[in-house]
Design a protein around this nucleic acid. Sequence first.
DNA 1: CTACAATCTCAAGTGCACTTTAGATCAAGC
DNA 2: GCTTGATCTAAAGTGCACTTGAGATTGTAG
Lengths: 150, 150
Amino acid sequence: MTLKHSDILTIGELAARTGVAVSALRYYEECGLVRSIRSAGRHRRFLRSDIRRVSFIKIAQSLGLTIEDVARAFASLPEGRTPTASDWRQISHEIRSVLDRKIAQLEQMRETLDGCIGCGCLSLKRCALYNPGDQAGKTGSGPRFALPDA
Amino acid sequence: MTLKHSDILTIGELAARTGVAVSALRYYEECGLVRSIRSAGRHRRFLRSDIRRVSFIKIAQSLGLTIEDVARAFASLPEGRTPTASDWRQISHEIRSVLDRKIAQLEQMRETLDGCIGCGCLSLKRCALYNPGDQAGKTGSGPRFALPDA
DNA sequence: CTACAATCTCAAGTGCACTTTAGATCAAGC
DNA sequence: GCTTGATCTAAAGTGCACTTGAGATTGTAG
């Protein structure tokens, strides 16, 4: 089975098919998220499978993962191979748990906010939004907060 | 009722009481989120009530509001007055609805992701994560996405 | 009165995820 | 062959929310 024309894409074609800017694709390559081979004239050539790869990057990002996170996920795959369907499943499950955590965090905040609305305290020492679980004053000196892990 | 010493704070004191860096406080002032009066030697002096104000900024930020968002919320208060408890309630309600939207968005994504795990398509044209509600191809030419309103 | 800490202003730097610019090279249609 | 558009590299710029640095001034404890 030889390569059909449509198995090889220029950067512009990949951009068109993924909706991602050419400059962003070059940036992804720089970050190691995608790889390209080069034409005689040093132009990038991508594989059809990179459409999936780039799509996945965008999906993961839309779920709040950073480029680094995505890079780590990809790195966990055997030897930089183009991910198979079961690899996608694996990564998708990881993303789902990230999503779960984010939702739980927000729900927790919403609950606390509900408790706070109307209390009018909004004092750092007493506000539950700052001191969930009544931890204030327990962990050494100076202020500390229970904000989402930044 | 005259001003007690503790009603006036230096920037360092405000920083200590809110856990926000001095440089951040100066930045907030530059953005119009807080106001200060000046001492004879042009040092900033804050009011006790600014502790609340700054606390609120941090809370709002932790819920995903930008400085701009907070500025808008503050601007909606009558003539830059120091917010009353009922003002806080008002803003808190606005923030709650922001929170509601965020949670709903993430839950929607999680649901879609669940549907996608295992389907292995991850193709831009067919993936539900990109085309929720089967909108693909409806809205003119070129790729478009249903990502969170950026 | 004198150190020394705190504060001041203004400019520049940081990190993320890109975009933009500039100037050069390549590929394709006529 | 030539023109036009796509692509190339490298460097700089963008926006957010700050931080850091430099050099000057102020405030306060002893």
